[in-house]
């Protein structure tokens, strides 16, 4: 959490790097621990980058969830969190923009927050109405983060 690891342009390139088609159901968390459900899925990008999708959902609160797209930095064990799609369960504050909201929101890694000491790379978040549940958030991530649509879905859209 110190110093700029990736520029905004590099972050955008990693987010949009082509990724293989994956059925959304693969990401539905089923492993129950400490009152939440977990799923962790490794994904290899078209350019050879290694990504990990981390999904969490509280057992007693279906709207308290996170869908995270992380990039595995080569020759390191560090996972750089590119995107995080959150449900409707808590407030979020962007200190640079001086705004606080209670809404579904999407965290995005940014250069400017990496430059702030003690901040997570994906600190910045924007409210969204692109989804209203975990399944919708997973599909939104697949639609916006370079994943090829699964063949069945593609055919059904023809």
């Amino acid at each position: 959490m110190s110093g700029i690891v990736f520029s905004d342009a590099q972050i955008a390139a990693l987010v949009t790097e082509q990724k293989p088609p994956i059925e959304p159901s693969i990401f539905i968390p089923t492993l129950a621990k400490l009152r939440h459900l977990r799923a962790d899925v490794e994904v290899e990008g078209g350019a050879g980058s290694n990504f990990r999708v981390i999904v969490r959902q509280r057992e007693d609160h279906p709207l308290d969830f996170s869908v995270i797209l992380g990039y595995q930095i080569p020759e390191s064990s560090r996972l750089f969190r590119l995107r995080r799609l959150n449900g409707l369960s808590h407030q979020h504050t962007n200190p640079i923009e001086q705004e606080t909201f209670y809404a579904y929101h999407v965290h995005e890694a940014t250069e400017r927050y990496q430059a702030l000491p003690g901040r997570s790379e994906e600190h910045y978040a924007v409210p969204t109405d692109a989804y209203v549940d975990l399944r919708g958030a997973i599909e939104h991530m697949l639609d916006t983060a370079g994943f090829d649509p699964p063949t069945q879905l593609r055919m059904s859209r023809l």
Partner: peptide
């Protein structure tokens, strides 16, 4: 906290 704190921490660490 309804279990949220540990879940949140699990984004970046092995809470086990």
């Amino acid at each position: 906290d309804g279990g949220h704190t540990y879940m949140h921490m699990s984004y970046a660490m092995d809470v086990d």
